[in-house]
Design a protein around this nucleic acid. Sequence first.
DNA 1: CTGAAAGCGCTTACAG
DNA 2: CTGAAAGCGCTTACAG
Lengths: 334, 334
Amino acid sequence: MRGSRATIHDLAAAAGVSISTASKALNNTGRMSEETRERVKRFAAEIGFRPNAMARGLLSNRSFTIGLLTNDTYGRFTLPVMAGISEALVDHGVSVFLCAIEDDPALGKVHVDAMLDKHVDGIIASGKRVDRRLPVDLSNLPVPVVYAFTEGTPDSVTFCANDFQGAARAVDWLIGLGRRRIVHITGPETFFSVRKRAEAYRSIVGDDLPAFYGTWSEIWGHEAVARIWNAPGPKPDGIFCGSDQIARGVVDALRERGVRVPADVSVVGFDNWEIVAAETRPPLTTVDMNLKTLGREAGLTVLALAEGRTVEPGIRTLPCDLIVRQSCGGEQPR
Amino acid sequence: MRGSRATIHDLAAAAGVSISTASKALNNTGRMSEETRERVKRFAAEIGFRPNAMARGLLSNRSFTIGLLTNDTYGRFTLPVMAGISEALVDHGVSVFLCAIEDDPALGKVHVDAMLDKHVDGIIASGKRVDRRLPVDLSNLPVPVVYAFTEGTPDSVTFCANDFQGAARAVDWLIGLGRRRIVHITGPETFFSVRKRAEAYRSIVGDDLPAFYGTWSEIWGHEAVARIWNAPGPKPDGIFCGSDQIARGVVDALRERGVRVPADVSVVGFDNWEIVAAETRPPLTTVDMNLKTLGREAGLTVLALAEGRTVEPGIRTLPCDLIVRQSCGGEQPR
DNA sequence: CTGAAAGCGCTTACAG
DNA sequence: CTGAAAGCGCTTACAG
């Protein structure tokens, strides 16, 4: 079968028309008898004719491809974002180049150049934190660039999750369950997301209850629990964690101390990272950043830009959801 | 900057030569004075000229793109495979379309058609188990197809990990550490990989020691440990698990019973799934299937096929490595 | 109602 | 040593 694709010449010959007519028939342009148009389409289906996208691209200056650039090797953020982009764009006939560039500027440039050579219609830059840029210069590119979960330029469109709202949702949930001594165990304070989430926490519980900053790891969850339970005074009845990994460490540590979750302490995570949240005992109630939706929006936005529509620049903050499992007790969310 | 790319006409004008000469200069073909060639190249660099891949593709019938099709939504297998493919091919100027098709045949067809329209030079089909096919017909495509971690057609090239060798490596390691009562806790027997790994286990420990088949989950690790430790008779001193998730459940269950890992029991996992293996307490010694290498080989193979080189069809089984952490005790691997 | 021609941005015989 | 011409597979004014 290799190398034997039907071209528009084959189609025109088969249908007994000129290639111009064949082209117009398929594209529903030009004027011709309905009969001719139908006949061409029938033959096209019969011989399996599909127009060569490279030839079309040459004319239209549209390749119907976009590039997704990411430094998230792990895929925890990129995969759902990618899924959303792909889902939104496949209906428009656009395919997505995935380019993992780690934190290597040289590799980044190689990938960007390769994408530009292929005349991608646009680029989505994505990362793992909103306060860091990808190690590659994306300004002054001849194609539109949209940012998702990574820092963009001021004049560009950037998508990110609403950390404040998501965190507030989690803490409100604990409050709604009657929890009053709520602590916050989270990641490094250098992360913008960490500060935003802590702000939301503070805005609800006030300044008297403590937030503990550490690393994005299970072990930090263990350590934090040890520190809190080894200290004198009343213990928390609710813990809002900055990530599911931390939450898992916290839950494990509590179980090992004989503290019951959720009977004695309710625990909320952040990320809804299935592999962690669902396997924790009990499974974690956690905040979902709706990364797939975020990807979908980002995809639709580059597409709009590629088609020349104007899009308001700025940061688009998408709301988070709370996914209720068993680590908090209580009923389903309203 | 939008829409203002230099074409070969611009370059030719700038360098004061014809477009034929410009083209030949850049491609190091044709004959001309060294001076002319250098001058063209200098101007090309200066005005940032990069040939339009769509135009070249039209001539050469090469798009310098390939498609990676996968039904592994989770990315646990696909991501490392993708990384390997990308790494191997970026040096050849080829970019990779990632198409996640879940288990939806219709979606699969849409993606395959989109890729064919774009004249990908080849397709790599990848999945999450070697004894299942993707839900899409990849035979009689006008481009070469290579399979990675999913079942291929008999006349195609298929890459997979050597489950037998990997499992043998793990069990040998336990034996080398002086373990003698080794049990095997693994996934569903319906999986080819499970049977292969169990075979390897049997070939070393004989038929007297038991293998336990269950699901790919932590909870199954817990259950299996309960079943084994609640039964009368001597307990195992080594456990070879069919996945890291199972191993994590096993290790947690043992700790909760007061059985020390690795002092009393050595545990080996399978997958080297960082997020699980490294976060287990103690971190897991486990089998790594070298998926990145597998991806690299698959990438190089489609490329060879795309360039018309002939490649021997058949199943290529790549060796696994043992990654030593702390769940077994003992020294570093030879 | 339909087709011949020009052209998208390149490469590659071919001519001089 | 260099350039004019044809052509890859399409689309789109334009002519009839």
